[in-house]
Write a protein that binds this DNA or RNA. Structure first.
Length: 112
RNA sequence: UAGGUAGAUCAGAUGGUCGCUCCGAAAUUUAAUCGGAGAGGAAAGUCCGAACACCCACCAACCUAAAAGGUUGGUUAAAAAGGUAACGGCUAACAGCCGUCGUCCGCAAGGAUAGGGGUGCGAACAGAGACGGGUUUGUUCGUAAGAACAGACCUACCCUUUCAAAAGGGUAAGCUUGGCAGUAAUGCCAAGGUGAAACGGCUAAAUCCCUACCGGGUGAAAGGGAGAAAAUCCCGUUCGAGUUCGAGAGUAAUCUCGAACCUAGAUUAAUGACCAUCAACUGGCAUUUUCUAAUGCCAGUACAGAAUUCGGCUUAUGAUCUACCUAGCUU
RNA sequence: GGGCGAGUGGCGGAACGGUAGACGCACUAGCUUCAGGAGCUAGGGGGAGAAAUCCCGUAGAGGUUCAAAUCCUCUCUCGCCCA
């Protein structure tokens, strides 16, 4: 699980990333990132009701994503606010598949 | 054995690796360390009801020379507006719950039901409701009498009689009065002699009204504080109509008394991620077997996530247990 | 977290509780034209049937009613508002 220090909390932070960040997408999920002025990176996760109406399902996806980020935290390049976005197809992935896909994205944009 | 009815309970367990939030300790700039706690029966839908806060209305007392205004307390009374409704009870309150009555459904166990009066409706059902009779309007035909067609209105409890649905007589339900049972709704019984289109049918889901009862509205984004202000933070916000156990009252809902306990407080939103073993159930395959079934292997594990807090209702949903009813078979 | 509204032919959208689909766009057929467009005329929810006609149809499921797109309850989907 991810300590609070590494999470994005403010409405404003989200708005800046959405507006000004760079992005990269694959079929099941995507990423947006923007430079911050800290010596560590922070992460936010968006799983909307369009992906699933049930809160339990959405929470589980978020928890899994956070776990994957936590496991890779020491390796990920510091100094960025990173937003992870999701699409409905993400429901069909199990933990290992999800991990593989997310790590692939991080490698693609050179953060890992 | 099959089918059904009602109710109750649980919401997999143990271990391993790595974590999150809050509280406490020491420490105090953080970080790190140790200890403790950490989702539901529906947390859901937001369909009702309350607590709580503010606003409105009204009442009382006080301040004020008076008015205006203000302060405090309250919702007893009145008004407005809105609502509630078989009867009796429970509750903080409710459209909830318990018990009872009526009506309807079911062979039964049982289930359903917001159940006062009028207006309005009948194109459906019931009714012999057709045909006929009477009155009347229009059109056509006809010299006229009248006929045909179409429409409107009136006309049916039973018996006697009659052309008649004219007259006479009688009666079910209802109505009035009385008795018994019941707190009551209501039920049973008796008497009276009013009673003809006395039919159908309706309510949360057309509309109006009587009577009785209830002050109304807005929702925690209420509302209050820190801050010059904004940003932001804090309070509200986690001890409560609280939980467990025992005793008593009551048919029950529920209430009273006693003891013990503290039991989530997040805010891009914690309460987890992954793995192993075992248990239960379901499905598939294989083997044995007349079948039931047994064994092995593989796969799967219901609905679903607190957000100010409670009480209900509704909807979603896996499994187990208990009691009862109906039918069949055996003894 | 709280509140409000909508769902009807292919599309947009009407319809006091009383014959469902007015009206517009698009579509099909015919007329017109050398041809196309425009214009004019006609047509159409689905199923059964030779036809007359019957049955099913207003997001879905129940209910009230003699009768429901309309009224009530639940569910689903979509949209909007409060910051």
């Amino acid at each position: 699980m991810l300590p609070k220090k590494y999470r994005l909390t403010k409405e404003n932070d989200f708005k800046i990333i959405v507006k000004q960040g760079k992005s990269f997408f694959i079929k099941e999920l995507g990423i947006k990132y923007f430079k911050n002025n800290l010596d560590y990176s922070r992460f936010g996760f968006i799983v909307s009701t369009k992906i699933d109406k049930r809160a339990t399902v959405r929470n589980k996806i978020k928890r899994r994503l956070r776990e994957i980020v936590y496991q890779n935290l020491s390796k990920i390049k510091p100094g960025f606010d990173i937003l992870i976005l999701t699409k409905p197809e993400i429901k069909n992935l199990d933990f290992l598949q999800l991990k593989e896909k997310l790590e692939k994205i991080f490698k693609k944009i050179g953060f890992l």
